[in-house]
Design a protein around this nucleic acid. Structure first.
Lengths: 367, 367
DNA sequence: TGTTAGCACTCTGTTAACATGAGTGCTAAC
DNA sequence: GTTAGCACTCATGTTAACAGAGTGCTAACA
């Protein structure tokens, strides 16, 4: 069987209607809803075909039709295609369309000082953005802090805080900073500290977690004379620190929006969803900046429908993510989680706007 | 009317029964449940009295009775009293009783190195603890990072990271560390950086946020000669950093446990609760380490029943918090949120155990 | 005077029967 | 290929009946 234009139009009409109402949609509705001027009976025949092709299904005999994941997929792909075309042709119009949204974002993001304060405040900026996004879309939204690709060490520094405490500051490429307080057994003098700092920096600079191994820790420790054991422990700590930076930090907002959608809000489903949002580890996979080279990568928009996320807790959800650039080569992701019948179009627009703003604010230099 | 022993026993029986079943409890049940050997009719009379006194109420005519907040209060206060007595008399038994619980905690908390790694890992330790607590109690649990009382500045350090970036590391009393990346307009040499560090430390050391005002920023800036404007901006950043440290960091776990309790799990209520758990700001008040000097302060256990939290989202919940000591004088709180009919006794025990473990691990030196 | 048995009354939750309405598939006619 | 008509199915909502649990009250009892 072939998916001709008419079938596609009907499918689109079904989906659009279902997105709006959330109710199974019947042939009569479509007959009136579209400009196809077809009777309900005809539509019924076409719908039977569409069902056979796997794009729609009936929740029970004698109910209207609901899109399947495949149906959504088709719809979304079409939408994304026309969206990117549109984007290329007249990106301004896109902005104008959600003008109000953007105005609010601008307001939120613009607050300049004579020092560029962008780096220190990412966390709060992202929290604000994710909050606003959730409030504007009525879906749950999620953002990940920028992730350094390989987490190369850029700079280490030990500082004496108390007689028995050293502060170990680790800066990774992409200017991710981590601290660790280390308690030491015997006091250490400033002179020695300076030497240790030099030693650590010269040895560890530019290395990734994988490259800091037992062997080199031992060799470095040797050079530190009587502080050998201390140094090797410090290196362990540094490795652990880098490792912990590998865990992506994620913020969520608008979890309660789940309850707006009956298909997600029964105890079981909602509980599972809330869990994954709270524990965040499970979201890591979805929010990590993996390198896929499919067509949509250009706009950075990625759509996961139902099972496509491979998280069982999200089998009734869709998720849309977009990538923003923090520093050159350092990306983070921002996403929206909603019911499968979410307003994909609106969400894609909203995410595009947000990432534009973030890119302007952070990455690609302000306009 | 007087609350004699018999009435108290009946009230206790009602509450105990309600905690177990979650159903309104009737006179017949009590007549059998207690060792008072009274007929249902008698109990009914007493219950009418208890209702008049405001300790119990009927959800509707011809239903059993449910405790009011006042009823719970009475019950909890009695329980806490006997608990602390018991604690003083034979604290070992208490430990033995929840032996299994404690074993798990110990396992979780004990992992020693030759460097004392306690400081760097609080965050992960607390996350583990809160997770375990939620899993063991089947309630939602919450923990706050240690809060420095007044957030005095202990140490500042500027470090050059790139030509145009300084890393500003701020250490507050209680060894809370904060970083901020500052982008500067013109490069600065090491010599000058050293001087700025000295200047900043000598000026700001020991100050709280309140004490860092515009006036002194100006005076300090003067001393920095051509870097005056830079210094005053840096001071602003430092102030902001301290300010942000005032915001308590809170982790939650087991939010989904809300759905175990029907009285919390309808969309409205659950949504509101999830929101306050997600946004955390609202919890700040409850989790901040204010100095009350009521009796229960000794054990650090605090119980909020229903409206007592003053959060409307938690009007159907109870919350129990306990205080743990991180460093001398630096406390954090750990708490449990559940339905009003939660198992107060079990939760108090669990919290006592957890804070004991944390104190042993962090504060009062390992045993 | 405190306690108890008995009884009428109230409210909830469940079940069954029934009507309604939306939607389908199929057939026959256009 | 399209449409009108019709019988059939299924979910939903309403109503009535009924059992069960619990109360308050009264009268009897120790």
């Amino acid at each position: 069987m072939e998916l001709d234009i008419r079938k596609k139009k009907i499918l689109q009409a079904i989906i659009k209607n279902y997105l709006e109402t959330g109710e199974p949609v019947g042939s009569r509705t479509i007959s009136k809803y579209t400009d196809l001027e077809l009777s309900a009976a005809t539509i019924r025949n076409e719908m039977a075909d569409l069902e056979e092709m796997g794009y729609i299904f009936q929740p029970h005999t004698s109910a209207g039709r609901i899109p399947t994941d495949a149906g959504y997929r088709l719809y979304v792909d079409d939408m994304l295609e026309s969206r990117t075309e549109e984007l290329q042709k007249e990106s301004e119009r896109l902005h104008a369309r959600s003008e109000e949204l953007e105005r609010r974002e601008e307001e939120l993001l613009s607050s300049e000082g004579s020092i560029d304060d962008r780096v220190g405040h990412i966390e709060s900026v992202l929290k604000d953005v994710v909050k606003m996004l959730a409030a504007n879309t009525n879906y749950t939204s999620v953002v990940s802090m920028p992730q350094t690709g390989r987490n190369r060490l850029k700079f280490v520094q030990l500082t004496k805080i108390d007689e028995d405490k050293l502060l170990c500051t680790v800066v990774l490429e992409g200017n991710i900073v981590k601290n660790e307080m280390i308690r030491i057994k015997e006091e250490i003098d400033q002179q020695m500290l300076l030497r240790l700092n030099l030693l650590l920096n010269s040895t560890l600079n530019g290395l990734t977690l994988q490259e800091i191994n037992f062997d080199m820790a031992a060799r470095t420790a040797e050079q530190a004379e009587q502080y050998g054991s201390l140094v090797s422990e410090i290196i362990n700590h540094i490795a652990a620190t880098i490792g912990s930076a590998d865990g992506i930090e994620i913020f969520t907002s608008g979890a309660r929006n789940i309850f707006r959608y009956p298909e997600l809000s029964d105890s079981m489903r909602a509980g599972e969803l809330i869990s994954t949002l709270e524990e965040k580890e499970l979201l890591t996979e979805l929010m990590s900046d993996e390198e896929t080279e499919d067509g949509n990568r250009s706009t950075g928009i990625q759509v996961y429908i139902g099972q496509e996320t491979s998280l069982s807790s999200m089998k009734d959800c869709s998720m849309i993510t977009a990538t923003y650039e923090f520093e050159k080569g350092v990306y983070g992701k921002i996403g929206i989680i909603g019911p499968k019948r979410m307003d994909y179009e609106k969400v894609v627009d909203a995410l595009n706007n947000v990432t534009d703003s973030l890119d302007r604010k952070f990455g690609k230099g302000k306009k």
